[in-house]
Every structure is written in structure tokens, then in C-alpha cells.
């Protein structure tokens, strides 16, 4: 596997003295889907600013496809790593959608026909064909989010970095956006790195998860991370609802250890485990069941200090 992004011993403090990142080291491989979780103020946004060289002179090494980011020219950097920021109003700063989506390609020095082709392609990828002449203030929030993504896709980056892509979206837009990101990863081979809190979406958007809280606290598959309730507890994080529910089912005697993390996976897991038991599974309630359930709830419901009575 080729290394897409490699960060070694990265430190960063803001000019006012706030330490945002401490000794970050991580490697992300080509084609991976990585999610970075961490509470508010953990340094996720700050970290992302390092990945395409927006913060100059990083205190550490950031390597993109084997080359140090400080040695790369602007045009090369934006072709390797594209960052979609959280607030689309920050990212759409030009008068029209066309101007915003063509901004990157024009800066890359492409000729007019190429620029136009890329704008059309990027807009069609996000499902907004024909929106070229619209002005951002007449778009809905979900549409602005998609234009912001298109304005990065038009640079055709190999690595796509998204800061909280699902925040503030309505359920339909959220699902569409998740599908879109997955499509870009699976069909276009774009490596995706995403920061988010939306734990119920993480299983769909991550092969691998990093927990960031100024430094890298943990790394692993979504299942590893969500099984470690102490880790979640310490970093103000949560496990997906489906996962917690199956933990409780385990207490009732549900036979499988392969616990699903999201709704679709739950259907598969349930079906296969029931099939494996010749058409039925047996759940039961014993004396000790209450205590076990209580333990599960207490370990995962640390955000509320009441348990199951």
C-alpha cells in the first residue's frame, strides 16, 4: 500500500499560546477511508490546515505521497490534497457558483476549456448540474455544502479532507452526502479523511478511526474504538446506538460477538446469526441479566449520570 499522507511529530500552537496539536504522528494509505474523531476543540480543524500546507512551516514533517509538503509548489499541493471546510459560507467566497468551482482550476493554470469541463464534471458529481449561474446566498445549506465540495473536487485532488461534513444537514441531505463521499472513495479512488462527531455515520465512512485530543489518543477499526468504553468516556465520545443495543442483546443471551455498528449491518448480522441457529435464537432473562445490562448502560451512558434501575 502506498502512503498517501504521513505526519511525524507534528506540534502546533496558535500565536496566542493555545496548544492545539502535540506530537501527532500518523500514516494514511492510498484509498483508505479514515475518520478522525475528537471532542470540540480537540484540534481536528487545526490538523487539517496542515494537510494542504495552509499553515506554513509546520512544527513537524507532513509528507504527501512521499514528498514533504513544504517542498511542494502551491499548484501541486492543491492537486494532491483538497480540504472542504465546515462552514460552506467560508468556502464559497465568489459571486457565483461557477466562479467558486472554477477558482481552483484557474489557479492551477488550466486553459478555459479544461476549466469549464472540470466545473461541469464537479457539479454533476455532487448532483447540481446547471447551477453554474446561481449565487450562493440563494442556495439552501445542503446545496451550499455540495457546492463547497464541488469547488474542491474540481481540482481533482487525490486526497479529500472533510471537516464535519454531516453537521447541520437534514436527514436526507446527510444520507446523500455520506453516499456521495463513499462513492468518491470507492469509484474514484479518492482517499478520504473526515473529521466528525456523528458517531452513527462513522461506521459507514471509516475503515479506520483515529481519536484525536490534542495528540493521537487511539487508533483502530471502528469496532475496536467503540468497544473501548473507557476511551470513549475519557474523550467525551459515544458509541453508535445500534452497537449499544446489541451490547444489551448480548446480556439477554444473544449469541454473536460480531456486533454491528450501523443499521444495515445490523440486519445482515441478525439474519446470519439467526440462520446459523437453524431459524431461531434464544433470548432469556436471568437474575444476573439485570446487573449485566446495568453495567453496559453505565459504561456507555457516561454522559448522563443515571443508570438502568
Amino acid at each position: 500500500m502506498k502512503e498517501a499522507i504521513k505526519v511525524e511529530n507534528l506540534d502546533y500552537s496558535y500565536p496566542d499560546g493555545t496548544t492545539a496539536l502535540e506530537d501527532i504522528s500518523l500514516t494514511i494509505y492510498e484509498g483508505e477511508k479514515v475518520v478522525i474523531v475528537g471532542p470540540n476543540g480537540a484540534g481536528k480543524t487545526t490538523f487539517f490546515l496542515h494537510l494542504n500546507g495552509t499553515i506554513k512551516n509546520p512544527g513537524g514533517d507532513v509528507t504527501v505521497f512521499g514528498r514533504s509538503i513544504t517542498s511542494m509548489k502551491l499548484k501541486e499541493r492543491i492537486h494532491e490534497v483538497g480540504v472542504v471546510f465546515q462552514d460552506p459560507d467560508d468556502q464559497l467566497f465568489m459571486p457565483t457558483v461557477f466562479d467558486d468551482v472554477s477558482f481552483g482550476p484557474i489557479n492551477m493554470g488550466l486553459d478555459e476549456d479544461d476549466v469549464k469541463r472540470r466545473v461541469i464534471k464537479a457539479l454533476s458529481k455532487v448532483g447540481l448540474e446547471g447551477f453554474e449561474e446561481k449565487v450562493p446566498h440563494n442556495l439552501s445549506y445542503g446545496q451550499k455544502k455540495r457546492v463547497a465540495l464541488a469547488s474542491v473536487l474540481s481540482m481533482e485532488p487525490k486526497v479529500l479532507v472533510l471537516d464535519e461534513p454531516t453537521a447541520n444537514l437534514d436527514p436526507k441531505s446527510r444520507v446523500d452526502f455520506i453516499d456521495l463521499i463513499n462513492h468518491l472513495n470507492e469509484n474514484d479512488g479518492i482517499t478520504t479523511i473526515i473529521a466528525m462527531h456523528d458517531v452513527n455515520a462513522i461506521p459507514e465512512l471509516a475503515n479506520r478511526v483515529y481519536v484525536l485530543n490534542r495528540n493521537i489518543v487511539a487508533e483502530g477499526s471502528p469496532r475496536d474504538i467503540f468497544s473501548d468504553w473507557e476511551l470513549l468516556n475519557k474523550n467525551n465520545l459515544e458509541a453508535p446506538d445500534v452497537f449499544k443495543l446489541f451490547k444489551v442483546l448480548n446480556c439477554f443471551g444473544y449469541p454473536s460477538d460480531n456486533l454491528p455498528l450501523c443499521f444495515n449491518e445490523a440486519i445482515q448480522v441478525l439474519t446470519s446469526s439467526i440462520e446459523g441457529k437453524e431459524g431461531h435464537i434464544h433470548l432469556h432473562l436471568h437474575e444476573h441479566t439485570h446487573k449485566e445490562i446495568n453495567d453496559v448502560i453505565n459504561s456507555y451512558n457516561h454522559h448522563r449520570n443515571n443508570g438502568y434501575k
Binding site: F85, M94, G104, I106, N107, M155
Partner: peptide, 16 residues
């Protein structure tokens, strides 16, 4: 400004 930099802004107006 950060997001302009990440799209390769170099100081001149960028329009076609």
C-alpha cells in the same frame, strides 16, 4: 482566507 489559500489563491482576482 484559509480556504482561498487551499484553492491556490495567489493575490490576483480569479475569474474567467
Amino acid at each position: 482566507y484559509q480556504s482561498m489559500l487551499s484553492k491556490g489563491y495567489g493575490g490576483r482576482p480569479v475569474t474567467m
